[in-house]
Structure formats: structure tokens, C-alpha cells
């Protein structure tokens, strides 16, 4: 047979490509379940790590921890909020953060997940999602806040392809353990944790950047400021609600006075 004729070439390549496509389709379908499970488990793991669950004393990831179980037993309520601080109907866990990040960047409306976690001592902790662009690829993470919505319980970061030994260090304890205990407040206003090159001066709020990884460090800082700014209306609303709940009497008095003033005018 003439293997160099046009007909033969076209028929041959067509059959080959269809066969290969079939093999790949079967493999992709067969493995999809396991891959999705892995991805979900990874997500649960990152969420739990931000609160300090599954971290050992040095802040390193405890490989033996059962993150699925931790997630299911400690994460209570999950909700989705928009940039105006309103709660919207959606599933927090299945949100595509990459798409939401694109929305944020474009200045469009975005959906932001909030996970409510109950700690061992009964404290309520709020976990917020982060997603951004590093030097080579995506970076993402979660930041957990105390009930006052400004003290950081912990944060965790991960990346797709930052430089090993440099930018990749954002996923190492030396970097992410710095976030615990930071208070995101400056001159009485909410101000996200910043990653400062050359060492943080305001140690109550900021953390140190990684030497040799200026762009990745800056990317983490930008990511925090973009997402926390988007969460801010919701955070402010929650803070206001907490203030009302704490001091109902005083607020009531004040409102009465205001009403009287208004009547006089």
C-alpha cells in the first residue's frame, strides 16, 4: 500500500486522532471523581489550616490530620456576600475564586465566600478567601479573623508556580505564621495586613516580605488589600451589628436624643 498518498494520510491521521481522543476521554471520565475529591480535600485543608487546625507547634502542616473530618466538624455556616456587604444565595465552597477575582479586578460585582468556624474553645472565627496573581501564576489563600473582624487568627497561602526557594516560601511556616495576631487597624480605620519589603515597621499590623521574592511578596500584599477591600462593606456591617448588640441601651438613648433634636428643629 502506498503510505504516502493523500487519502491514506488523511484517513490514517483521522483514525489515530479519534482513537487517542477516545482513550483520553475515557481516562478523564474515569479519573474525574478522584480528581474532584482531591481538589475538594485540598480546599478543605487550606481552609482549616488558616485557622491553625492541622498545624503543629512550629506551624508546619501536620500530614496525618484528617482535614475532611476537621472541616465537617468545625465549619458551621458558610455564606456568600457581595461587594456591597449583602448576603447572596450561593454555595460558598463551589465558588470559582479565579472568576470572582477577575470580577473584582474589572470592578464588577463579585461573590465572596465566608466560612464560619467554631474553634475548640467555642470562639467563632470567620474565614475569608483570597486569590491573586503571583509572579508566574496564581496565588491564593485564606485568612481567618476573630469575632472582632480585625484580629487575624491565621492565614495560609498557596501558589501554582512561584519560584522554588523564593516566592514558593509564601507556603512555608516562616512566612504564614507571621500573620497570626496581627490587628488590621490603623488610625481607627480598617487597614489590611501589608507585606513590607525590608522588614515591617508597624509590627502590630504588617508582616515581613521574603528576601529575593519581591514580586510574590507584593502580590500577596495586593491580594490581601483587594479582597479585604471587597469584604470591607460586609465586615463593617458585621462590626456595626456587634456594636448595636453590645450597647443597646446607649444607642437607644442616643436615638431618642436625636429624635428630640430633630423635633426642636
Amino acid at each position: 500500500m502506498n503510505t504516502n498518498s493523500n487519502t491514506y494520510t488523511i484517513v490514517y491521521t483521522t483514525i489515530l486522532v479519534v482513537l487517542v481522543a477516545a482513550v483520553l476521554a475515557v481516562a478523564a471520565t474515569a479519573l474525574k471523581g478522584r480528581q474532584t475529591d482531591n481538589m475538594n480535600l485540598e480546599k478543605m485543608k487550606t481552609i482549616m489550616l488558616s485557622t491553625g487546625f492541622g498545624l503543629d507547634e512550629q506551624g508546619a502542616v501536620d500530614k496525618t490530620a484528617d482535614f475532611k473530618n476537621l472541616y465537617e466538624s468545625h465549619i458551621g455556616n458558610t455564606l456568600v456576600v457581595n461587594c456591597k456587604g449583602e448576603t447572596v444565595e450561593a454555595d460558598a465552597f463551589s465558588l470559582n475564586l479565579k472568576a470572582e477575582y477577575a470580577n473584582l479586578k474589572a470592578g464588577a460585582e463579585a461573590s465572596l465566600p465566608v466560612y464560619e468556624c467554631t474553634m475548640e474553645d467555642g470562639r467563632n472565627v470567620h474565614i475569608l478567601a483570597l486569590y491573586g496573581a503571583g509572579l508566574w501564576g496564581a496565588i491564593w489563600g485564606y485568612i481567618a479573623l476573630e469575632d472582632d473582624w480585625q484580629t487575624v487568627v491565621g492565614a495560609i497561602f498557596d501558589h501554582a508556580s512561584e519560584t522554588p526557594g523564593l516566592g514558593a516560601k509564601i507556603a512555608e511556616p516562616a512566612f504564614y505564621t507571621q500573620f497570626a495576631g496581627k490587628v488590621m487597624e490603623k488610625d481607627g480605620a480598617f487597614s489590611p495586613v501589608a507585606v513590607i519589603k525590608g522588614g515591617a515597621t508597624d509590627r502590630a499590623k504588617d508582616v515581613d516580605a521574603i528576601s529575593g521574592a519581591t514580586i510574590t511578596s507584593r502580590a500577596v500584599s495586593d491580594m490581601l488589600s483587594v479582597w479585604l477591600a471587597a469584604y470591607l462593606p460586609y465586615i463593617e456591617a458585621q462590626k456595626a451589628m456587634a456594636a448595636v448588640a453590645e450597647e443597646p441601651a446607649e444607642t437607644a438613648e442616643e436615638s431618642v436624643i436625636t429624635e428630640e433634636n430633630a423635633m426642636e428643629e
Binding site: 503510505t3 504516502n4 491514506y8 494520510t9 490514517y12 491521521t13 489515530l16
Partner: peptide, 10 residues
């Protein structure tokens, strides 16, 4: 069986 002209693609 590989057609010589498209062997790299194959």
C-alpha cells in the same frame, strides 16, 4: 504504517 510526511505529527 505511519505516512512519512506527517510522521512528526503522529
Amino acid at each position: 504504517t505511519i505516512p512519512n510526511r506527517v510522521r512528526i505529527i503522529v
